[in-house]
Amino acid sequence: MEVRTIKVFTTVDNINLHTQVVDMSMTYGQQFGPTYLDGADVTKIKPHNSHEGKTFYVLPNDDTLRVEAFEYYHTTDPSFLGRYMSALNHTKKWKYPQVNGLTSIKWADNNCYLATALLTLQQIELKFNPPALQDAYYRARAGEAANFCALILAYCNKTVGELGDVRETMSYLFQHANLDSCKRVLNVVCKTCGQQQTTLKGVEAVMYMGTLSYEQFKKGVQIPCTCGKQATKYLVQQESPFVMMSAPPAQYELKHGTFTCASEYTGNYQCGHYKHITSKETLYCIDGALLTKSSEYKGPITDVFYKENSYTTTIK
């Protein structure tokens, strides 16, 4: 009895394709271990004539594949690729409408935090270190965002349907971005203890939790000093293409032309909904596939993004 075979390709990165001759009487799992086709788990399936010449994702289970996976995804987590594939199996079914010149995501599976993050990423200057993220990001900007969303979920250790947080998501993504040249110098002034300067680099240099107003941050924000008295913390120097200011959701007025974009969060910790506000020729609110415009805006804002380049204080 002759062994019926077909020729397929296996890959971990969709760049390096490895030619395989597979036995049609055995499952993919018996031949390769966990195997995925377009995100779908085909591990328990036997090869079919229609699979001839198709590319299958496999887990990096030998040295060659491990090197290829690390170079593309910059992670050695053995569960990463499987999590990416199972997320992709959902995100490829989502709709990605162009809204006001940006790629958004039609609401499904509690994905409003991903839509808000995706919209924000198209408006701030950011370059990702893992080629996987950078490639998928370019495709997302062009309207094909399924891979990018699935990668975000995998890097953030999230599953489809789980509630997510924009600030946490951005923080994970910033860790995989090139923020080497970003720098922030802060000064804390206390009447009792004097003053202390701190220099922050990388992710810490672009994120701040405690106030939404970048102007206020430049002037000074009140913080408790270690001595128990009130101290003032203010920005001395900022070198970065953008800054992200966050605070627990509270009524906040966004003035046209003073910011790049913002995240609105309605609801409580267990259950809520994100919308995205962007400042173009007027203010726009993007909620999944829905767009509304207004000249002014007041609502429960939790993150505001500002364009920056270089700032030095005039406070002496």
Rank of each mutant, 00 (worst) to 15 (best):
E2K: 09
R4S: 12
T5H: 10
V8H: 07
F9Y: 14
D13H: 09
D13V: 00
N14A: 13
N14V: 02
N16F: 07
H18G: 05
V22K: 10
V22M: 09
D23T: 08
D23L: 12
M24L: 14
Y28M: 11
G29W: 08
G29M: 10
Q31H: 15
F32R: 09
F32E: 00
F32N: 13
P34Q: 14
Y36K: 02
G39A: 14
G39C: 13
G39E: 10
A40N: 14
A40T: 13
V42I: 14
T43C: 09
H48M: 13
S50T: 13
H51R: 04
E52I: 11
E52R: 10
G53P: 05
K54R: 11
T55N: 10
T55S: 12
F56Y: 07
Y57K: 05
L59T: 11
P60S: 07
D62T: 12
D63S: 13
R66C: 10
E68G: 03
E68M: 04
A69T: 08
F70C: 09
P78D: 14
S79M: 14
G82S: 14
S86M: 12
N89C: 14
T91V: 08
T91Q: 04
K92C: 12
K93T: 12
V99M: 15
N100F: 07
L102F: 04
L102E: 00
T103K: 03
S104W: 02
S104M: 00
K106H: 13
A108K: 06
A108N: 05
D109E: 12
D109G: 05
Y113K: 06
Y113R: 05
T116C: 15
T116E: 03
T116M: 00
L119W: 02
T120S: 10
L121E: 02
Q122N: 07
I124T: 04
E125G: 11
K127R: 12
D135M: 09
D135Q: 11
R139C: 11
A142G: 13
E144V: 07
N147D: 14
C149N: 00
L151K: 01
I152K: 00
L153S: 01
T159S: 13
G161Q: 03
E162S: 06
E162Q: 13
L163F: 15
G164K: 05
V166Y: 10
T169A: 07
M170G: 00
M170R: 00
M170C: 04
L173R: 04
L173K: 07
L179T: 07
D180A: 08
D180F: 07
S181E: 12
R184K: 01
L186N: 02
N187M: 14
V188C: 08
V189C: 12
V189P: 05
Q196W: 13
Q196P: 02
L200D: 09
L200W: 04
L200P: 01
K201N: 11
G202L: 02
V203K: 12
V203M: 12
Q216E: 14
K218W: 02
K218S: 03
K218G: 00
K219H: 04
G220V: 04
P224V: 14
C225L: 02
G228D: 03
A231P: 02
T232G: 02
L235I: 09
V236A: 09
V236M: 08
V236T: 03
Q238G: 04
Q238E: 03
E239C: 10
F242C: 00
V243T: 02
S246N: 01
P249L: 07
A250P: 00
Y252R: 06
Y252H: 10
Y252E: 00
L254K: 03
C261K: 02
S263I: 14
Y265Q: 03
Q270P: 08
C271G: 15
G272W: 00
K275E: 00
K275F: 01
I277S: 01
T278P: 01
T282L: 10
L283V: 11
Y284S: 10
Y284P: 03
D287W: 05
L290V: 14
S294L: 15
K298R: 11
K298S: 15
D303V: 01
F305L: 07
Y306R: 01
E308L: 10
N309L: 01
S310I: 15
Y311E: 15
